[in-house]
C-alpha cells in the first residue's frame, strides 16, 4: 500500500459548455487525500461530487488546475495511460452494481485480474479471497440475476478490491439498497479499508453512508464548503 499523500488537487476547475453558456462544475478545488482514508464527498445534486470523482478516477480531465493521483498528473494522461491507471490502481463501485450479467460472481471478480494478466492459479486465489472478504465465497457460481441487490453490490465491491487497488471510488453505492443492506455494505468497506489500507472515496448524499465516514468534504456549487475529520458514528 502507498503511504502518505495519495491524491492532491490544486486549483482544480472543471467547466462544461452548455449551449452558449458554461457551467462551472468545480471551482478552485484544493484537496489532499492520504492513503487509507475513508472519505466522502457530500452535497446536493449538481454540487460537483461525481465530477470530482470522475477526474480523480481519470475518467475526465480538468479544465484547469492540477490533479495528481498516485504520483501521476491526470491532465497529462493519454486514454491508454488513463485506462492503465484505472486498471492497476483504482477500483470503481457504481450505484447500479453494473455486474456483467452473463458471468458468474466469481468471473465478474476475476475480470480485472484478467486485464492485469495475472496467472490463473493466483487469479483464482485472489478472486476467491475477495469474495470471501465480502462474505460471498459460497455464491461464487451464481449469476447476477440470482443475487439480491445487496449481494450484487458486495460482488461489485469484491470486483473493485480484488486487485488490491490503492484507491476505490464509490458513487452512491447504497442508493439502491435498503437500510439493512446499506449497513452491511458499509461495514464491509470499513473492514476492507482497515484491513487492506485501501483508500475509499464516496460521492453520496445518503445519511446511512455518512455515518461511517471518517472525513466528510461538503461541496456546494463546485466549491469545497467544509472539509472535516469526523469520528464515525458507527464502527465495523
Amino acid at each position: 500500500m502507498v503511504e502518505g499523500k495519495l491524491i492532491q488537487t490544486e486549483k482544480l476547475v472543471k467547466i462544461y459548455p452548455m449551449g452558449s453558456s458554461q457551467i462551472t462544475a468545480l471551482d478552485q478545488v484544493n484537496l489532499v487525500f492520504q492513503a487509507a482514508e475513508f472519505a466522502g464527498l457530500v452535497g446536493p445534486s449538481g454540487s460537483g461530487k461525481t465530477t470530482l470523482l470522475n477526474i480523480i478516477g481519470s475518467l475526465d480531465a480538468p479544465t484547469s488546475g492540477s490533479v495528481e493521483v498516485l504520483g501521476g498528473k491526470i491532465e497529462n494522461l493519454s486514454h491508454r495511460e488513463a485506462a492503465a491507471l484505472r486498471n492497476r490502481s483504482i477500483g470503481f463501485i457504481f450505484q447500479t452494481y453494473n455486474l456483467l450479467p452473463v458471468y458468474t460472481a466469481y468471473e465478474n471478480v476475476e475480470f480485472p485480474l484478467l486485464l492485469l494478466k495475472i496467472p490463473a492459479p493466483q487469479r483464482k486465489k485472489m478472486a476467491m479471497d475477495a469474495l470471501d472478504w465480502v462474505g460471498l465465497a459460497d455464491r461464487a457460481g451464481s449469476r447476477p440475476s440470482q443475487l439480491s441487490g445487496g449481494e450484487s453490490q458486495r460482488v461489485a465491491i469484491a470486483r473493485a478490491i480484488v486487485k488490491k487497488p490503492e484507491l476505490v471510488l464509490a458513487d452512491e453505492p447504497t442508493a439502491n439498497l435498503d437500510a439493512k443492506n446499506s449497513h452491511h455494505i458499509m461495514k464491509t468497506m470499513v473492514h476492507l479499508n482497515e484491513s487492506l489500507q485501501t483508500t475509499f472515496i464516496f460521492a453520496t448524499h445518503d445519511e446511512k453512508v455518512m455515518r461511517y465516514l471518517k472525513r466528510k468534504i461538503s461541496l456546494d456549487d463546485g466549491r469545497v464548503e467544509k472539509d472535516e475529520i469526523i469520528k464515525p458514528e458507527v464502527g465495523k
Partner: peptide
C-alpha cells in the same frame, strides 16, 4: 453497460 464497465475497470478502448 458492459462496455462502459469494462472501460471504467481499466480495459483500453483498443
Amino acid at each position: 453497460g458492459e462496455i462502459g464497465v469494462r472501460m471504467a475497470i481499466g480495459e483500453a478502448r483498443g
